[in-house]
Simulated assay, not measured.
Amino acid sequence: MKIKNLFITGLSVIILILQSCNPKNSKETSSNVAVTATDSRGKTITLPHEAMRVVILYNALVDDVYMLQAGEKIVGIPQQIYEMEDTYSFLSKLDERIKNKSIATPTFGGQSSNTESIVGLKPDLVLTFNTDEDNINQLENLGIPVFTFSSLNDEKILDELKNAGKLLGKQKRAEEITGYVAEEVKKMRASQATSPKKIYYAWSKGRIMSTSGKGSLIDMAITLSGAQNACPVPVEAPNISAETMYKWNPDLIILWNSKLSDVYSLKELEALPAVKNKQVFVMSPSFPYDPHTVKFMLFAKQLRHWCMPEYTQEQLDQDVKKAFEIIYGKKGLI
C-alpha cells in the first residue's frame, strides 16, 4: 500500500510538471506581457499587459474592436451605438450586452463626453480619433492611456487597425483582416474604368452643398471604385453653391444618411443632368459601408456597382457577404 501511494504521488508530480510546460498555460499568461503600439499621432503607447477594459469614444472604433473579436474587453461606448438602427441591429448579433443596452455610454460620439464617467469605468485603454484633442488631453493627464486613429486613407486605416490589435492582444486577427482587405484593394486598383464617371458625394443629414475634396478619405474611396471625385478642390470639406454643382456636372450624386428627397426637392438642382436622369443614390443601410473602417473597400465596391453596370448587384452582394465573413470571422451575419 505504501509503494502504491508513493507511485500515485510521483505520478501527480509528473502531471503537474507537464501541465506547467503546456503551451495552453503559456498562452493564458501571455496577457501579462507588456504590449506596445504606435498611434496616429506617432505616439508610442505601452501597456503592462494587453488591454482588458476598453472605453471607445466613436462608433467606427467600436466596430473595429468587434472585427478584432475583442468585444468582451469593451466597457464603454458612444450612446449613438444604441440609437443608430442598422449599427445596433448588427452589433446586437455579436454581443448580448449591446442587445440589452447594458454597456455604459459615457460619451456621445466623442462629444459631451463625461470624463468622470469614463474614469469610473476604470479603463486601461481609451480609443478615439486624433481630432478629439480635449478628451485626449484630459484623459492622458489623468494617467489613462489613449490610442488615437485618423482614418485618413486606406494605408492609415490598415496600419491603425494592426497597431490597435497589438494593444488588444489580437495582432494575428488584425493581420488576417488587413491582409485580406489589402489584397482586395490591390485587385480593385488593377481593374479601373477607362472613362471614369464623376461622383459628387454629399454630407450627411441633408447637407447637400457640403462635400469632400481631393485628398480626403471619401476621395480615396471614390478613386478606388474606378470613378472620379467631381470635386477638384483640395479641401477636406468645402461648401459649394448650386452654380458650382452645375459647373462640375457630376454623373452621380451619392448621399450618406440623407434622403433622396433632400436632393429632388431642391429647385436649384432640378435641371442638373444627374438629377433629371435619376442618378442620385443613398448609401443605405450605411453600416456595411462605413469608410472610416476597413469597410471603405465595400463603400468603393458599392460605388463601382452604381457606376459600372457590368459589376452586378449579385456580384456586389456576394462580395459583401464574403467580406463580412472574413472581417468579423463569422458566417451568416449579413
Rank of each mutant, 00 (worst) to 15 (best):
A237V: 12
P238S: 09
N239K: 14
A242D: 08
A242Q: 08
E243M: 11
T244F: 13
Y246W: 09
K247I: 03
K247R: 13
W248R: 05
W248C: 02
N249L: 06
P250Y: 08
P250F: 06
P250I: 06
D251F: 02
L252K: 11
L252R: 07
L252H: 08
I253C: 01
I253R: 03
I253G: 00
I254H: 07
L255N: 07
W256F: 13
W256I: 05
S258H: 00
K259G: 04
K259E: 04
L260M: 12
S261R: 14
S261D: 09
D262G: 10
V263S: 04
Y264D: 06
S265W: 12
S265R: 10
S265H: 12
L266R: 15
L266D: 09
K267N: 13
E268C: 08
E268G: 05
L269K: 12
E270H: 15
A271L: 14
A271H: 14
L272T: 04
P273E: 06
P273Q: 07
A274E: 02
A274W: 05
V275Q: 07
K276L: 12
N277M: 11
K278A: 04
K278C: 00
Q279E: 10
V280F: 10
V280Y: 01
V282L: 14
M283C: 04
S284G: 06
S284I: 11
S284P: 06
P285M: 09
S286E: 14
P288G: 03
P288A: 06
Y289M: 08
Y289P: 00
Y289R: 10
D290M: 15
P291E: 12
P291K: 15
H292Q: 15
H292W: 11
H292K: 15
T293S: 01
V294M: 10
V294H: 07
V294I: 15
F296V: 05
F296N: 00
M297H: 13
M297C: 14
M297D: 09
L298M: 15
L298H: 00
L298E: 04
F299L: 11
F299D: 01
F299I: 10
A300G: 02
A300S: 10
A300F: 06
K301D: 04
L303T: 01
L303C: 09
W306R: 09
C307G: 08
C307A: 15
M308L: 15
P309S: 01
P309L: 04
P309H: 08
P309F: 00
E310N: 14
E310W: 03
Y311E: 03
Y311R: 08
Y311H: 04
Q313D: 12
Q313C: 09
Q313A: 14
L316R: 00
L316Y: 05
D319A: 05
D319H: 10
V320P: 08
K321L: 02
K322R: 11
A323P: 02
F324A: 03
F324I: 01
F324R: 02
